[in-house]
Design a binder for these strands. Sequence first.
DNA 1: CCAAGATTGAGAATCATTATCATTACCAGT
DNA 2: ACTGGTAATGATAATGATTCTCAATCTTGG
Lengths: 166, 166
Amino acid sequence: MRTVGASQPEETARAEEPGRPAEHGRAGGAAGVKTARGTRARGTRQAQALAVALDDLPGFCSAQEIHAALRSKGETVGLATVYRHLQALTEAGSIDTIRDVSGETLYRQCGTSVHHHHLTCRNCGRSVEVEGRAVEQWAEKVAAEAGFTDVGHTFELFGVCPQCAG
Amino acid sequence: MRTVGASQPEETARAEEPGRPAEHGRAGGAAGVKTARGTRARGTRQAQALAVALDDLPGFCSAQEIHAALRSKGETVGLATVYRHLQALTEAGSIDTIRDVSGETLYRQCGTSVHHHHLTCRNCGRSVEVEGRAVEQWAEKVAAEAGFTDVGHTFELFGVCPQCAG
DNA sequence: CCAAGATTGAGAATCATTATCATTACCAGT
DNA sequence: ACTGGTAATGATAATGATTCTCAATCTTGG
Ligand SMILES: [Zn+2]
Ligand SMILES: [Zn+2]
Ligand SMILES: [Zn+2]
Ligand SMILES: [Zn+2]
């Protein structure tokens, strides 16, 4: 199991546990931007908590890990909401995603929004952002030679980071 | 939906349908290699059928698609067995796997067993095998600079093939 | 305060993949 | 051919991450 952020007592945490008053809706305090009538911007308590968590986490982690991290900090955010925001952020390009060896999706807030790739520790999840001018060109060349169009790519590097190597 | 091999009446085919005499075990005919006592080799009817199917299929396809293709040819192979053999072949390095955008695993028998990558049509699944001397070196260099060890990589190219472009 | 619209979250639903486990087929001796 | 040991199979259940549903709750403009 990957070790990310604050580890908790190994809770399954598949669904929100019942029995609590259920605190819905957005928070009042530091509200954010707002647009036209009815459009609430990313200012809910849950969204902010998630943003903070993403900022704190040093590397890629799964939605469930993020959810666990939130709970461990006392934040009450539903797992479904975590997934929702992660998906939204991903579509907006604010965060990056990679796939675990087991197929699980891992999320991370990157320093830059320009196209880049990652060298990720398969033990702790910490990752280095790398730009690969060379591979971008290689990809285009190969695609062009084969006559393929609308080409995209997926380049991921995995290894063991210096800290984990010990 | 990707079009692979002979398309069938859109059967769900999640589990083998019951009501048939259930034909188990290995076939007698063209048995294959055998090793020490008790070790059967990869010569079962099901394994052969799967091998043939993999040979026929032009590109990457999912376990379920392969299973459907087998059934459409009259072969009776359980879905679990398909998964089992695909996994074994993958571990043996006989076939390659990539991940769908939805996370589904796709399999393909490649022409060569040496390390290479794929340029795959995201519409029909046909793929071109490409070798990337450049990216291999780039990967090693990047990993070394970051101090990572035991580094592996995942490079996949996706696009639309000339046939599908029309 | 009120109504409309957005957001949340608990649980159900999906769906690919794995694990069970009883049944069957194969093999080597006898 | 008969038999015991063992591998392989397949129907089904189980797993587990992600998505869907929808009622309850919040926010906000008026
Ligand atoms: Zn590490
Ligand atoms: Zn790139
Ligand atoms: Zn195509
Ligand atoms: Zn490579």
